[in-house]
Design a protein around this nucleic acid. Sequence first.
DNA 1: CTACCTGCAAAGACTTTGCACGTGT
DNA 2: ACACGTGCAAAGTCTTTGCAGGTAG
Lengths: 169, 169
Amino acid sequence: MHINCNIIAIEDILSGVTYIDRMTLEHDPKEQYDLKSALEELKRARFRITEPRVAILQALIANHGPFTVEEIHKLVTKRVCDLVTIYRCLASIEKAGLIKRCEFGDGTARYELCEKKNHHHHHVICKSCKKIETLDDCELQEIDRFARKRGFAQVSHSLEFFGLCPACK
Amino acid sequence: MHINCNIIAIEDILSGVTYIDRMTLEHDPKEQYDLKSALEELKRARFRITEPRVAILQALIANHGPFTVEEIHKLVTKRVCDLVTIYRCLASIEKAGLIKRCEFGDGTARYELCEKKNHHHHHVICKSCKKIETLDDCELQEIDRFARKRGFAQVSHSLEFFGLCPACK
DNA sequence: CTACCTGCAAAGACTTTGCACGTGT
DNA sequence: ACACGTGCAAAGTCTTTGCAGGTAG
């Protein structure tokens, strides 16, 4: 298959978009998937390697999200595929365990690349400019005990912080 | 104004609805608003006391949520007002600080009565039966420090747990 | 070759908005 | 009296689904 590398610079696309902070785009990639290993994961999960899927993975590897479906569609250049295909591909890629769907209470889902060995983190969202920052090493590994104490199994959680970022204060 | 007390028993309405656990309906009401003080709050926030608003508050006082807009509409009996009015009333009542909007990542907002003096809590949601339980006294009062360390002000957070409840295990 | 994937169009679910009429204060 | 609230209808936003044609393995 010929992979048409239609990924364009996120700065060009998102110019004027305030709620994605440039800061978050530079992210320590030490645990991130590269394209090769991501495609291997996709294959292992019995999904086919198609141009839209490769383009989405490239976009999410090159730019640190989370991004809405629309944003991802713009990132891969609308020419690559239809918006509906982005929805469907994101669903498959999520099933393969490569990306994670986040909800921040604004009624729109966002996706971001998982890190290898499933190291998870939380977000801080500015109430004013909507910038999303990532909290690494949040020291909350044991937080699920609150649910386990209630007899729940297979516990996971979603934790998002909202506030005014230094610039908006 | 004549307040038509059209609230009917939640058991009658929600019969067969699995995702609202009966358990959560019996909730220690020590810090809950009663109708009188809730209406006073509404008045203080410059909102008018209307039949739909009274009915919604009665429903939320009598039944421990969180509930979707549709569920609240059923709780107050569809006769009281249109679904659109429920949306608008919930927005006003939330602005008055009496109820809280929650999002659990299924694309549907839910509302629940606040407790007086703003004592907040978190939820545990069963991945299988979708039952929502409330975690009181979660010992996480200091959790906002994670965001404050990043220079954020006016920090709040949303924390939801997902897992398999004892019955579904 | 065949099951899986995609494009296009349409529908679905939830929520918001416009406007005329009604009501609380 | 008049600003605020409501009903009905319509539109808006995000997401899912159906079906015919296309493609990876």
